[in-house]
Nucleic acid binder design. Structure first.
Length: 225
DNA sequence: AAGACGGTCAACCGCTCCTTC
DNA sequence: CGAAGGAGCGGTTGACCGTCT
């Protein structure tokens, strides 16, 4: 016999938002068990918490992710994996849900397509003295190239400044492709690109040293030293 | 113009971790 | 020390919206 939830589900109304915001401002965050009744909401505590954290909380940034934010997400994801709250904690105004959604809808796809394009790009890298400019994905236009190599577009955007991390990402991926795809190589790759990563996440390492030390040991990153 | 399709994002679900007793 | 309940997290879903055919 299935139990029917007594709580309301689905999208939040403005009135519910107002009640929740007022309640949290009055009683503070935490104690989510009591929030629904205090606010007069027919919502479960989880729903209230999520709504507050992802939508109502002050200083939440909305809209597109800036380039440096994307940069940070990629770097942190390489270090932390899918620990979205930790990643989001390093990006002011962004929630774990935001980061997770952005990763799933933008970055994972980009990295996947990059994965398939890497071998092609790699060949060009060896031919060219200015390798990173040849791949479409580096310009953020990694749509399918319909099976055959396209002529490099030489439009004005060709000379647009390219974030250096894309270059390093490509080179790191190349390294990875060349070596192999197993976990051992993943670990090695962490070491290869370590300088770059560590510079980008110094603060994180300070804040999370215990947590990360554990991760790094698990991944063998510091074990090689 | 309209239906199909794909992308995005808010919200839910189930699991794990943490705290308290 | 173990059990129970609460809190938090990541994965997944589904509705909505824009674009394509």
């Amino acid at each position: 016999m299935g139990r029917v939830s007594i709580f309301r589900k689905g999208s939040w109304s403005e009135e519910e938002d107002k009640l929740l915001r007022r309640c949290v401002e009055m009683y503070g965050e935490g104690n989510w068990r009591h929030i629904p009744s205090r606010a007069g909401l027919n919502r479960c505590r989880k729903s209230c918490r999520l709504r507050w954290l992802n939508y109502l909380r002050p200083n939440i940034k909305r809209g597109d992710f800036a380039l440096d934010e994307v940069d940070l997400i990629i770097r942190l994801h390489r270090l932390l994996g899918n620990r979205w709250t930790l990643i989001a904690g390093r990006i002011p105004g962004r929630t774990a849900n935001d980061v997770k959604n952005y990763w799933n809808s933008h970055l994972s796809k980009k990295l996947r397509s990059e994965h398939t394009l890497t071998s092609r790009c790699t060949n060009k890298l060896h031919e060219s003295s200015n390798p990173s400019m040849n791949s479409r994905w580096l310009r953020g236009t990694s749509e399918s190239s319909s099976g055959h190599d396209q002529q490099p577009q030489r439009e004005e955007e060709e000379e647009e400044a390219k974030p250096s991390f894309w270059k390093s990402l490509l080179l790191e991926r190349e390294e990875k492709e060349t070596n192999s795809t197993n976990l051992a190589v993943e670990k090695k790759e962490m070491v290869v690109g370590e300088d770059d990563l560590v510079v980008g996440v110094d603060e994180l390492l300070q804040d999370l040293d215990l947590d990360l030390d554990m991760d790094m040991e698990l991944w063998g990153v510091f074990g090689d030293q």
